[in-house]
């Protein structure tokens, strides 16, 4: 009984530290000021640019599509371990983009993997625009 109380308390503490529930459009809107500041003449995010970004290997071995597949509404798998990955597109997987800490963690890791650098706010916004356009 004591152990389960400790576990529940620990889990509650961890949960309290994470972001409030969110959605992709809201997260994307949060990126707009930084995107606009970095680029004079920024005219909004583009699903078309986002799609090109998603499919490009950016000079390396992997693209986003390598693990998340050509069709973001489909489930994907890790290129080496073949671990199943749930769909990226919010239309297929409503849990996506609902936790800011999780979004930032995966952008950090996967942009390093694919681009060898952080993604810019505009790139992230375009990427989300593409994912939102896929039904």
């Amino acid at each position: 009984m004591q152990n389960r109380l400790a576990l529940a308390a620990a889990l509650a503490l961890l949960a309290a530290g994470s972001a409030h529930a969110l959605n992709a459009a809201e997260y994307q809107a949060g990126l707009a000021p930084a995107a606009s500041a970095a680029e004079p003449g920024f005219a909004g995010f583009s699903a078309q640019r986002g799609e090109a970004f998603y499919r490009s290997t950016h000079g390396g071995d992997w693209s986003c599509a390598t693990c998340h597949t050509d069709s973001p509404t489909a489930g994907g798998s890790h290129a080496v371990t073949r671990k199943a990955i749930k769909p990226l597109a919010p239309a297929a997987n409503p849990a996506r983009f609902t936790d800011a800490a999780k979004i930032e963690k995966w952008f950090k890791r996967n942009c390093n993997d694919v681009l060898k650098r952080a993604c810019t706010p505009r790139e992230e916004g375009d990427f989300i625009a593409y994912l939102l356009s896929v039904k």
Partner: peptide
Amino acid sequence: MKKTLILLALAATT
């Protein structure tokens, strides 16, 4: 305190 709780929780579930 939080770290101790997390550790306890981790230990308890293994």
